[in-house]
């Protein structure tokens, strides 16, 4: 950029700070991973050890049942609930945002937009009782459907779609209308193909965010049978006489899928979350 020669010391210091900070941020992952392979006694004697004494995978079979439910149930619940709530959320949000961008002044749409904005600002953990009542009245308490529908909507998803649809030039749509296309054809033949990349981004981000959800799932569930991995981890962590190694192993199982997914799609996720936030 400028002609100023970079001092070697400044560069050295900059890398020192950046590397140290990054390693401190990554250390908890390493500690979690290593601790999953070490017995309580081994950790107590050397908490800082960077590698496990032995590579013993038996803990993952030891935690085969947690709280009277198979570990595989939690895994399947996580996958099913996250996938379905993501699909429902992406479709519903895309259609809703599209309609609201195309007809911002239609009766009721402004109310709906404000209703949504208020909802995402409300301290959701304080909706326990009302959500419980609503789920009860709808007969959805303890059901997968209740959990999936509750998790479907989210702010970043809505803002990303809204931002994208607003940027479509009205000429594109008008030209199609002049050619005699119906609104349905405009949506399916013109808008949706254009929206493929943003839909992929929103799908990824929604999946990552919904995988982490725990509180609504805990509230809507009537038994651990519908718990996902984070909820199971929380209840295991709250037990007395905690099984430290088991907790770390479960934390690894909870974290690993989304960490890998994120690293595979990091560019899309980081850019998407940044622009979704900037809009809001």
């Amino acid at each position: 950029m400028t002609a100023k020669p970079t001092s070697r010391f400044a560069q050295f210091a900059a890398y020192g700070v950046a590397i140290t900070t990054s390693l401190l941020f990554l250390y908890p992952y390493w500690w979690m991973l290593v601790s999953a392979f070490r017995s309580t006694r081994e950790i107590l004697s050397a908490p800082l050890r960077l590698l496990p004494e032995t590579l013993d995978f038996s803990i993952f079979t030891e935690i085969g049942r947690i709280g009277g439910v198979d570990l595989s149930t939690y895994v399947i619940n996580s996958i099913v609930i996250t996938t379905l709530s993501t699909l429902v959320g992406v479709i519903v949000t895309a259609l809703g945002a599209y309609a609201m961008v195309r007809r911002p002044k239609a009766p009721g749409f402004t109310f709906l937009r404000y209703g949504f904005l208020v909802t995402i600002m409300y301290p959701y953990m304080l909706l326990v009782i009302p959500v419980y009542i609503v789920m009860y009245k709808l007969g959805l308490l303890g059901s997968y459907a209740g959990i999936i529908l509750f998790l479907a909507l989210g702010p970043i998803q809505f803002f990303l779609f809204e931002q994208f649809f607003r940027a479509i030039p009205s000429e594109v749509i008008e030209a199609a209308m002049i050619d005699g296309a119906s609104e349905w054809q405009v949506l399916t033949r013109i808008v949706l193909p254009m929206a493929a990349p943003i839909t992929a981004t929103v799908t990824l981000i929604t999946f990552l965010l919904n995988w982490s959800q725990w509180f609504p799932i805990l509230i809507i569930s009537r038994s651990p049978d519908t718990y996902t991995l984070p909820v199971a981890l929380l209840s295991m962590n709250s037990e007395l006489g905690s099984n430290f190694q088991g907790i770390m192993a479960l934390a690894v199982i909870t974290t690993l899928p989304v960490a890998i997914l994120f690293l595979l799609a990091q560019k899309r996720v980081m850019e998407g979350m940044a622009s979704g936030a900037v809009k809001g």
């Binding site: 970079t6 900059a14 890398y15 725990w214 974290t255 980081m270």
Partner: peptide
Amino acid sequence: LIRRGNLFFRLALFLPVITPDVAGYVV
């Protein structure tokens, strides 16, 4: 000052954002 490794540093800081909060806080 930082030319190489920029992406690594951003990934290191962003990974906790997508890590399930329960898991992160348990650790």
